[in-house]
């Protein structure tokens, strides 16, 4: 399981790095799909099969298809890709990399220099997740439904001509 985790983690990191550096949006999206699928493998190795299934269905399925529809509607051509490449000069990355490195150093320090235990991951089944979700967190479910309704109405309103 550990070997599978490490392979999937390396694939996730590489494909995510490729996804945010491509000039062509479709190439970026295809790398993003790979990163999401390997993330689903990681969830599986962490003992969360339900989250892995949701990752494949919702992220790699619905979210990426939505992205692809919009990219198709934008009808990007080679001219757009060339302009994109002009925006991506090397100097653009310098300041963000410095800021992100500082933030990452602080986060890693907090995370890895605190005590923890190393017990084996136990598999948490979908049944347990469902029982917890609909017994303890029913108010949060209602709030999530309100959020989705607000998103639906907002998208409908903004999408009208």
């Amino acid at each position: 399981m550990t070997a599978v985790f490490f392979v999937a983690a390396v694939i996730t990191l590489i494909t995510t790095a490729l996804a945010i550096t491509r000039a062509n949006p479709v190439h970026g999206l295809l790398n993003f799909v790979l990163s999401l699928l390997s993330m689903a493998v990681i969830f599986f190795t962490l003992g969360a099969p339900f989250a892995a299934a949701l990752e494949v269905m919702v992220y790699a399925g619905a979210v990426v298809v939505l992205f692809l529809f919009v990219v198709m509607m934008l009808s990007l051509d080679t001219r757009a890709a060339r302009r994109e490449r002009e925006w991506m000069v090397k100097t653009v990355w310098v300041l963000p990399i410095v800021l992100v490195a500082v933030l990452g150093g602080v986060l890693a320090r907090v995370m890895f220099f605190s005590p923890g235990d190393d017990s084996a991951p136990t598999v948490i089944t979908p049944q347990e997740v469902g029982a917890h979700l609909f017994s303890g967190g029913i108010g949060a479910v209602e709030l999530a439904s309100m959020l989705l309704l607000a998103g639906l109405i907002g998208a409908f309103h903004m999408g009208r001509k």
Binding site: A48, L54, I124, A131, H132, A144
Partner: peptide, 8 residues
């Protein structure tokens, strides 16, 4: 299971 609930 709370981790997966928050993930949802």
């Amino acid at each position: 299971a709370d981790g997966q609930i928050m993930f949802i």
